[in-house]
Design a binder for these strands. Sequence first.
DNA 1: ATAGGTGCAAACAGTTTGCATGTAT
DNA 2: ATACATGCAAACTGTTTGCACCTAT
Lengths: 128, 128
Amino acid sequence: MARRTRQGTLILETIRKAKRPLTPAEIHSTAMREISNLGLATTYRHVKALADDSVVVGVDYPGQPTRYEWVDGQDKTHFTCRSCDKLFALDLPQTDELPEFDLPPGFVATGGEFIVYGLCPDCSGQNK
Amino acid sequence: MARRTRQGTLILETIRKAKRPLTPAEIHSTAMREISNLGLATTYRHVKALADDSVVVGVDYPGQPTRYEWVDGQDKTHFTCRSCDKLFALDLPQTDELPEFDLPPGFVATGGEFIVYGLCPDCSGQNK
DNA sequence: ATAGGTGCAAACAGTTTGCATGTAT
DNA sequence: ATACATGCAAACTGTTTGCACCTAT
């Protein structure tokens, strides 16, 4: 995606401004508030290009579409609610380096992610 | 899935005997060696029931179908190869307890999983 | 001017569901 | 005997692709 277009800028800004990871459908419908005839395929093409460039990152959770979020340098820990299935990117005091695993011979680690399951404020009843 | 059937037993055994997490399609084609007219939908129905009962657990990785593996009590750390996309369940000296996160107010953690990215023995060239 | 992007529709892959038939209890 | 499981096909959801038209460079 080498050329600068209205659509591309809009899709990028939509993800950047979001406060939580968004699905392609969410990105699309949000962006359509600006460009009402924006194609869903265009959204997918840009999201994919942004992910390839590591400008955004995809987060997956079983049975749900991939969500994308802005990469602002620091890794996020992700929290998925067992009840409502919403996905949150938590700013946590980071584990920073990979735990010193003894990987089996031949395996080379380049990164890692910690996913926490549980109940979000709305579902835990501890919403305060 | 309260009733004991040939299909149900076969699907369960197929996952239990596998050495790595399998996709529904893999489970189905493997199981078809025993019951050649096994329905794919039946496979999905049993896999889902097993997952609901926490007999098996689903593992996801972006852009790939969910894979299912036997739950043998201890949690596994999962390793996904950036090159060939194969998924491995590693037996590692377990982090055991959840790292003592300071979760934001209202969040309640019930579990967690660590996913490591990198290169598998076949792709790292360190296959020995 | 022209390579690359866009919108639309059709194609695909994975998964779920409806329904008539089969079978464990 | 009968409620539940099965197999098949059709339906659905999320994502990708083909293609004629449009637009940033």
